[in-house]
């Protein structure tokens, strides 16, 4: 269905880009994204996805402020529907903000890969965030953190919050719109220094979670 006049106005700032066609916008409007986790970076990611015109966003995970986020997204863009829960959903894209680099994250990554779904994981460390689009044969999230020499943390850094959420939304938006797959190397964003670099991590032979991920369990 062609874009309506109000949609052309709403999405004009991305439709001006050469490769961002009307068909790409229509793809976004039909797409379903499942988001795991909670916290300010995830909230920002959801709002950026909503602003870009993702049709349905499903939030998986219990959080007290979910209604507030749903209202904010709806106010931002009436084309976007935000839902609580994602059980039984067949999404087009999975973004994982859960503060977990252990077995839970490895299982979610394996589940997404088994189902053939794009899986983007955001790992938080002190003052930094790592973002990685997983593929078969990749190390587990814990080993990616180790490769960066970082330890997982619950502490939030304002810079990291403002960077990782929108960056994850941008990666997902471009891929859902058919404008390319982001790098499979982990992208380390050092919010304190304002620096970015790519990490090439490999599975560790002795890591049980890497083995589970490789087996797709």
């Amino acid at each position: 269905m062609p874009l309506r006049d109000d949609q052309i106005r709403r999405y004009a700032r991305q439709l001006v880009m050469r490769d961002f066609t009307g068909a790409a916008q229509e793809c976004l409007l039909k797409s379903r994204v499942l988001v795991y986790g909670e916290g300010p970076p995830m909230d920002l990611c959801v709002l950026y996805l909503a602003a870009a015109g993702v049709g349905d966003i499903h939030l998986s995970g219990v959080r007290p402020s979910v209604l507030d986020l749903i209202w904010r997204a709806a106010a931002l863009n009436p084309d976007c529907r935000v839902h609580e829960g994602g059980r039984g959903l067949r999404p087009d894209y999975v973004i994982d903000f859960a503060q977990d680099a252990g077995p839970g994250a490895a299982r979610r990554a394996a589940g997404a890969l088994r189902a053939g779904l794009p899986y983007l994981k955001v790992l938080r460390a002190a003052g930094a965030a790592i973002m990685k689009r997983w593929r078969e044969g990749d190390p587990c999230p814990g080993c990616v953190l180790n490769a960066a020499g970082l330890k997982q943390t619950d502490l939030l850094n304002p810079g990291e919050t403002s960077v990782s959420g929108p960056a994850a939304a941008a990666f997902a938006t471009l891929e859902l719109a058919g404008l390319g797959v982001p790098t499979h190397n982990a992208l380390l964003m050092d919010a304190d220094k304002g620096a970015y670099r790519e990490l090439a991590a490999t599975p560790l032979p002795e890591c049980i979670m890497c083995a589970e991920l490789a087996d797709g369990r």
Partner: peptide, 14 residues
């Protein structure tokens, strides 16, 4: 602008 360009671009795409 930018709607003039965007609408022209969307039309050309078709």
């Amino acid at each position: 602008c930018p709607y003039t360009f965007v609408k022209s671009k969307l039309t050309l795409e078709q």
